[in-house]
Amino acid sequence: MPARSIGQEFTKGLWSENPVFRQLLGLCPTLAVTGWVINGLAMGLATSFVLIFSSLVVSIIKKLIPSQVRIASYIVIIATFVTVADRFLAAYFPDISKDLGPYVPLIVVNCIILGRQEAFSSKNSVGRSLIDALGMSSGFVLALLVLSSIREILGSGTYLGHQVMGSWFKPWIIMILPAGAFLALGILLGIALQIEKKTKSRV
């Protein structure tokens, strides 16, 4: 693997290895909670918190963990931070916590997090792991924001709960339903692939 600069380590998560648009990881919350921007944002931040701290801890103790029990150890570490995020939301943002329901505990099985531990934090230095986690988190938050913005504007005519579409606008109910999540994600993936193709062919 060619050595990347610190900057590239961060930006790869935003685009070239974006967890949602390029790696198609962590699609369960991506599809499930993006009906409203506030929920997408909360989910993105909760996942980021878990990813950043798990990467930090895993990269610090990576040499201590025998490879046979590494997955089990990662899961315990990830589950710990997920529970912290869950309790924190329940204590300080009860409404969001209620809206997200089972999807916060489900961050445990989000493949982005375990994937980054296995593919990156367990092999790289603490600093690089942190940068990688920050980049991947930003990429994930970005993807959730784009998707939830499209779905909330088209599905409810609002943005962060504020009316943005005129009274002529009839909300497309389908966009806040699961089918709308698939439609919007499919179209976004298509666009991402097109952009990737265009930029590649130019090189």
Binding site: L64, I65, V76, A79, T80, R87
Partner: peptide, 25 residues
């Protein structure tokens, strides 16, 4: 040893968080 200590550390950390957030919840 490693799995047990990871579990123990996580457990005690969570217990602390649990106590800290219990009242507000």
């Amino acid at each position: 040893v490693v799995l047990t200590s990871v579990g123990l550390l996580s457990g005690s950390f969570l217990a602390t968080v649990g106590i800290l957030t219990k009242e507000r919840i």
